[in-house]
């Protein structure tokens, strides 16, 4: 089945991105297709390569980045939400790309299910 994922929160204030990551990982392991992970609102902070968690903490930016590359999953970051929060092309972690909000609607059209993770 085709899933679209929407992540509305960043890696630290809320559990949303962790839950989304765990769900996405489990879905891929079960053979489902992830059409796209779209990062909106403070969720754009998941894409920042300026993030440096402490060494004993999980690094969600890195985890998403690796998942995107390993499974060839599109990690799309809303460009206007990103700009507002200081996220530009230069500080995107590998595997993420800036895109318009149209890609969120496109994910809804292309997926069998859209699952939203937020606060």
């Amino acid at each position: 089945m085709k899933f679209g994922i929407l992540v509305n929160e960043g890696p630290f204030n809320h559990q949303a991105s962790d839950s989304a990551y765990q769900f996405t990982w489990a879905a891929l392991q079960k053979g489902h297709e992830i059409v796209r992970v779209f990062f909106y609102h403070d969720g754009v902070n998941n894409a920042s390569n300026l993030s440096e968690p402490q060494s004993d903490d999980r690094n969600l930016v890195k985890l998403w980045s690796e998942l995107g590359q390993e499974f060839d999953v599109e990690l799309m970051v809303c460009v206007s939400a990103g700009l507002r929060r200081g996220l530009t092309e230069e500080n995107l972690a590998p595997g993420f790309e800036l895109s318009g909000l149209g890609q969120l609607i496109g994910a809804g059209i292309d997926s069998d299910r859209l699952i939203v993770f937020g606060d």
Binding site: Y40, G100, L101, L104, I105, I109
Partner: peptide, 19 residues
């Protein structure tokens, strides 16, 4: 919080897709 405001942008963009 910003959610309502940013949701407006999503809703407006959706009109381009004629859903």
């Amino acid at each position: 919080s910003i959610y309502g405001h940013e949701m407006q942008e999503t809703i407006l963009i959706s009109t381009a897709f004629e859903q």
